[in-house]
Structures are given as structure tokens and as C-alpha cells.
Design a protein around this nucleic acid. Structure first.
Length: 274
DNA sequence: GTCCAGGATCGGA
DNA sequence: TCCGATCATGGA
């Protein structure tokens, strides 16, 4: 199917900005990607102002997954006018300019939680490798060599030691603990969207060992669509120290702090690679 | 061999 | 409350 009127939506930026770990480019660049969302293996191709989806699932499912129902032009405007001072405005302008086209994906909360537990003190290529091995071994086969993300029960039955073979190292005990809590109902991820206050949702997720402020924020942002979450990792810390000498009060971005964060993250990494 | 990666936890000051 | 060491692993 083809979805029209996608504005400045960029497949490349959206799928290569570190928010998801199960997509790969089809060809030379990231203008077309393939991966798996839930039980749907899919190809997503950027047509420039439109996007082609090759996979099962209703149109509404993909529109929601890709956040095509969200007015990013309006949000960008708010982010650009949120800060005072010439320097801060200039930095944000550069970051928004570089990141424009990114969409915060609405990913599965459980997959997002585990993915970002794995992400701690780790790098993106290796995170992908671990998740891929885990899916192939513990996830439901979808045909064509594709696999669903493992259920809590599937990971729980591996045991902490069983998970070590995927190369997750010291994070194995955290993954197992999270799987056990969710499988046994001690943590109910479906209850999180009901928590209106960020602090409440954050506190709830951090009952899981291995989930600190950063993993919690990423899970809330990428898995629960909480755009007010502002994950601070080494890159964001770096850009805050380097380019905001007077400090950055991210609460000024209000309910869209997470999108501002993603622009800053993308911008700083782009500068490092350039 | 050394350093680093979308951090969290623990113990000691 | 804050700070440093430590935690596995592999790629640069």
C-alpha cells in the first residue's frame, strides 16, 4: 500500500536514528528498509512525500506505527521557539534542521523495554546483533526467515544463564528479571498508558532491576509514545555540555521534549561522523 | 593493548 | 547525596 501526504517524513532518518534495532537497509542507503513489527515482516520505502508499505497489517496500523497522525511541522515550530538566547536558538535550529523528517515510532512496549535494557553501556551494532540472535532463537517463526520478538514467557523460560549465549553479558539477569516480572503479572505494561504523570510511569518501570532513568525514558518515549520523555545518554550529555554552556532546561520543550531530544541526539552523532 | 558503547547498581566518602 | 568502580562483550 502507499500512504500519501507524509510531509517531510524520512525513512532514512527515522530508521537510522537509534530508536529501533530490527531494521536494515534494503539497498545502498536507508531510503528503503526491511524489518519486523509485531508479527508483520515489512518493507518500507520512502517515495518522497509518500511512503510504500509492503507487508500485512491495516493502513491504520502503519500510520500509527510511523506516527503519521502527528503534526511534526507544528511540533518543530514549538521546539524552535522554546528556548531563549541566540546560542540556544541557533543550536536547536541546526538540530531540527538536521533531524527534520524523523518520526518517533510507536513500538511495542515490551520489545522496547528489553531492547533498551540491552542498550545499556553498549553500542548500536552490537545491540542489534544481540536482539537478532534472541529473536531467531526464541521468537515465533513468521516465515521467510523472519521472527517475532520473543514473548516474556519465552525469555523467562531461557533463564538468566540461557540468555547469556546471545552475548548480552551482565544484562542477562536484568532481561530475565524483567521477563519474569511481566510473565507473572508483577509488572503490567498495559497499565502504564493509564498513568498520566510521567513520574508515576517512570517509577513503575524502574521497579524492574536494570531499568534506570535512561532506559525508562527510552521505553516511555519509543514504546509508549510519551513524547515528554527526555532520555539523557552519553550523546545528549555531550551536546548539552558542549553546545549549551548555560545549561539546557529541557522542560521548556514541554510535552514534546522527546522529539527535541531525538533531534539533538541525531545532530550530535551526525557531527561526530562528519 | 586500550578505549568505548542510547547505563545501572553498589559501596564508601 | 554524590562519586568512582564495576559489570560482559566485541568492534575500532
Amino acid at each position: 500500500m502507499i500512504i500519501e501526504n507524509t510531509g517531510n517524513f524520512s525513512v532514512m532518518k527515522t530508521f537510522d536514528c537509534g530508536q529501533c534495532f530490527r531494521f536494515e537497509p534494503v539497498g545502498e542507503d536507508w531510503s528503503e528498509v526491511r524489518g519486523t513489527v509485531g508479527d508483520y515482516p515489512v518493507r518500507i520505502k520512502d517515495l518522497g512525500g509518500a511512503v510504500e508499505i509492503d507487508g500485512d497489517g491495516e493502513r491504520g496500523f502503519w500510520e500509527k506505527y510511523l506516527s503519521l497522525d502527528t503534526d511534526y511541522a507544528a511540533i518543530d515550530g514549538r521546539i524552535l521557539s522554546a528556548l531563549d538566547g541566540e546560542n540556544d536558538r541557533q543550536v536547536m535550529s541546526a538540530a531540527v534542521g538536521r533531524g527534520a523528517g524523523i518520526r518517533i515510532l510507536r513500538q511495542d512496549p515490551w520489545e522496547t523495554l528489553i531492547s533498551f535494557i540491552i542498550s545499556q553501556n553498549n553500542n548500536i551494532p552490537r545491540i542489534k546483533k544481540i536482539i537478532s540472535a534472541m529473536c531467531e532463537s526464541c521468537g515465533k517463526a513468521l516465515g521467510g526467515g523472519e521472527y517475532a520478538f520473543p514473548t516474556p514467557e519465552a525469555l523467562c523460560s531461557e533463564g538468566a544463564d540461557g540468555l547469556l549465549r546471545f552475548g548480552c553479558g551482565f544484562r542477562a539477569k536484568y532481561i530475565y528479571g524483567a521477563a519474569k516480572m511481566v510473565a507473572e503479572g508483577e509488572i503490567d505494561l498495559a497499565a502504564v498508558p493509564e498513568m498520566k504523570e510521567y513520574a508515576d510511569a517512570d517509577e513503575y518501570l524502574r521497579r524492574i532491576a536494570g531499568v534506570g532513568p535512561k532506559v525508562s525514558a527510552c521505553t516511555l518515549l519509543f514504546g509508549f509514545g510519551r513524547l515528554d520523555a527526555f532520555p539523557i545518554d552519553v550523546w545528549v550529555k555531550r551536546i548539552m555540555e558542549k553546545r549549551f554552556p548555560n545549561g539546557l532546561d529541557y522542560t521548556r520543550f514541554g510535552e514534546y521534549a522527546g522529539i527535541a531530544q531525538q533531534y539533538l541526539f541525531y545532530y550530535e552523532r551526525w557531527c561526530a561522523n562528519d
